[in-house]
Computed example of a mutant assay.
Amino acid sequence: MTYNQFVLFCSDIHNRDQVIGKALLRYATEISHRLDSFPGQQYPEAQCASCYSTFLPKRFSSSEQSTMYRLLKILAFACCIVNAASVCSTSKYNQGPRDWLQCSSSNIIEVKSKLTLNLITVSVSGSSIPEIGDFTFVQNASTIENLNFHDCGINSIGNQGFRGLSILKKLSLPYNNLTNLKATWFDDLPNLVQLDLSFNRISYLDPTIYFHLSKLQRLDINDNILTCIPTQNLENIRHLKNIRIQENPLTYQCRARITLWLKNHKVDYATNEDKYRWLDGILWQCLSDLPTDQFADRRMNTCVVSNMFDQLSTILRSSASLATSTQECVPARQTLTQCLQSRNVNKNGDVLMNLLALTHNLAKIPH
């Protein structure tokens, strides 16, 4: 808290309680030169705990001192909380000549106040930044190559939010509240190589965005609420090598089209976290026979369910041979079966039979 902020605070109290207000204003005047001597006119965190006793003037009355003592303890505690919570530091990036700004528990005003002309990387996390306004980084446009806002609560970005960042290579906006993307964000990002939009609430991708990402090599769009990722214009991202799409509620038809396109163009999309990648073979098979009409999604669902039913049936038909393939395990298996039956446990076989019945009913969707 600067001296001027402190005086405004005291004046506000004075309007509500003149006795306490006068005492605090006298106090503010008394210590103004001490506040001004602090770096940046702020209370040093290390001295917060004792600032109220160190600067307490001796010529106030005992009642004034008692009241001020209590108020200043609260102010000192608040000062420590603010200083401890909001942290920004600058260091050399990869031991080189350029700077790396790291901030946490900050707001956009604090971040902007720390931007210097030598920055190559800006990394902000765990902060409260609901909006990135237009021309936020324009003064640093010629130096910033990496921009990372992780878990900052961002739900809005101005059309010109990244204006001028022509040498930006990596833009990371994970764990925020974005719901859509604007092509105008990427107007001035011709050299973007990595884009991370994971763990947001994005429900739609405008295919025209691809025109602005010709040099992009990696796209993370996983863990959003996309039902479809358009392949239209995707060929404009000529250097795409990796894309992450898992944990999106993609329709069968859309997943089939995007994964087949990625496979044919040798783009890596499969990860261990993608729990549906085993399904892609079935999806591609169904897609090859899919007519293009208003019932395409319905026909696709029917085809996929039918194929899964056939695979499950095959597994069940071969299960008997698996059960007796190792003779030495038969007694142990029988003992376990008897134990489970006596305890009325819902066994794997029961679960599979119920699943088959369910998929069989689903597969009866009329063509």
Rank of each mutant, 00 (worst) to 15 (best):
Q5W: 07
T335Q: 15
C103Y: 02
F137I: 01
Q327L: 12
G349E: 11
L56M: 14
S127P: 03
D36Y: 13
R34H: 15
K170P: 01
Q102P: 02
Y52L: 04
N146P: 01
E64C: 03
R317M: 13
R333S: 09
N94H: 11
L119Q: 04
D206N: 08
S11F: 05
S214W: 03
D293N: 15
L171W: 05
L171G: 03
L205N: 00
V267H: 02
C48R: 06
R98N: 06
N361P: 01
R59N: 15
N94G: 08
H360S: 15
I245S: 05
K241I: 05
R277D: 13
T143M: 03
W185P: 02
T29M: 07
V193Q: 09
R16L: 05
V330L: 13
Y27G: 08
L340N: 09
L24G: 01
D99M: 07
V122L: 14
Q327D: 12
L72W: 06
R299N: 11
A141W: 00
K364E: 13
L192M: 02
K114D: 09
A85D: 11
T90V: 13
R70G: 11
P57K: 01
L250G: 03
P249C: 04
P249T: 02
A76H: 04
V124D: 00
S128A: 05
L165I: 00
I20H: 08
T116H: 10
L260D: 14
R59P: 05
S142P: 01
G96R: 06
E145I: 00
S89I: 03
I315T: 08
D310L: 10
T324W: 11
C79Q: 09
H265P: 08
N354H: 13
F186Q: 00
I365S: 15
G133I: 00
T116V: 03
L316V: 14
K241P: 02
L362W: 10
I315V: 12
N264E: 15
A256L: 04
G133L: 06
I120Q: 12
R333L: 06
I109R: 12
I282W: 02
G21C: 03
S89W: 03
W261D: 04
N301F: 05
T184L: 15
S91E: 13
R163C: 10
G21S: 02
M353C: 11
Y175T: 06
L101F: 07
F137G: 03
I221G: 05
V19L: 09
S203N: 11
N4E: 15
L362A: 14
Y204P: 01
K170D: 09
N83Q: 12
H14M: 01
D187T: 05
D187H: 05
P249S: 03
K170S: 12
Q246G: 07
L234I: 03
